[in-house]
């Protein structure tokens, strides 16, 4: 039996969470005048032209594509690199493996902006500042701590007998890793892919520091927000917010349990 207070509390909290998000979706379909008139004007008939304006005139379309490219490219490098590291550090005993693992996971403790000054200088010196390549490299590097931390948990939980059986069957180091261990660690791969996709799609700090001409979607949207007080293009601004929120929320609605597991993975250990 659940008390009335608990029920009311949940209803209140659910409304506080959902209403502002729903309000952004509704506002993205309104005219500027409707938005200025009142937050409660009716978004029907919907004004989808806000999305066209956001995509083309406000240039968020190129931000959307850039964010997509950067997220996917980072994952393509990060997942093999991270799984190889986690696998080698947990399934092989050698001097310093524990030390390396703790130094790598220590990276989760500090915000990346603390290293912003030297990172920016270093990128500028090798000419990778303001390039997608430089940003992807930085993203891979700063995603390694979480990825290795989570995957090493999954790899170290795999039974030793399987490895022994595969080795007796003649599997080499690579064969054992790629054909036996990686498929078994699939749940862990899911976790790091989902967690990193969300984090990379939304990433703001490094994109803001390392890119100047190009803007990822969050940075482009943030710039629009600071100009908005002069421009007054409210409809397309809210449409831009929908562009950044919709892919993540869609993924969440489809893969709810996997997303929740991924969000918890870095915390519960």
């Amino acid at each position: 039996m659940k008390s009335l207070i608990a029920k009311l509390g949940m209803v209140f909290f659910a409304l506080v969470v959902v209403l502002p998000v729903a309000w952004v979706f509704a506002s993205s379909l309104k005219t500027n005048q409707q938005i200025i008139d009142s937050p409660f004007t009716n978004p029907i008939p919907p004004h989808f032209e806000n999305f066209g304006k956001a995509w083309v005139a406000q240039d968020l379309g190129s931000g959307f594509i850039l964010s997509l490219v950067v997220t996917l490219l980072t994952l393509v490098f990060l997942i093999p690199i991270g799984s190889m590291m986690a696998y080698a550090l947990t399934r092989y005993k050698f001097k310093g493996s524990g030390f390396i693992l703790s130094v790598v996971t220590l990276g989760m403790l500090f915000p990346n902006l603390l290293a912003a000054v030297p990172l920016f200088i270093m990128m500028a010196k090798v000419g990778w500042d303001d390039t997608i390549f430089g940003l992807v490299l930085a993203y891979v590097a700063y995603s390694i701590p979480f990825t290795v931390f989570v995957l090493s948990g999954f790899f170290s939980a795999l039974p030793e007998e399987l490895a022994e059986a595969a080795t007796i069957d003649g599997a080499g180091h690579w064969g054992l890793f790629l054909k036996v261990m990686m498929p078994l660690a699939k749940p862990g791969i899911w976790v790091v892919v989902i967690f990193n996709s969300i984090g990379l799609w939304n990433e703001y700090n490094l994109a803001k520091i390392l890119l100047l001409r190009h803007k990822t979607l969050p940075v482009g949207l943030a710039d629009l927000i600071s100009q908005q007080q002069y421009a007054g293009e409210w409809g397309s601004l809210f449409a831009g917010a929908v562009l950044v929120m919709l892919p993540i929320l869609t993924m969440y609605m489809i893969l709810k349990d996997k997303v929740q597991q991924a969000m918890l993975a870095g915390a519960i250990k």
């Binding site: 909290f13 969470v17 502002p20 998000v21 952004v24 939304n202 703001y204 927000i225 993540i248 969000m263």
Partner: peptide, 23 residues
């Protein structure tokens, strides 16, 4: 109600902080 809440409560954490700031 509990299940609904355990679905929606993660929304603010999942969306971009820029979108949250706009909100």
């Amino acid at each position: 109600l509990s299940r609904l809440m355990r679905t929606v409560y993660l929304f603010p954490n999942l969306i971009s902080l820029v979108a949250a700031a706009l909100i």
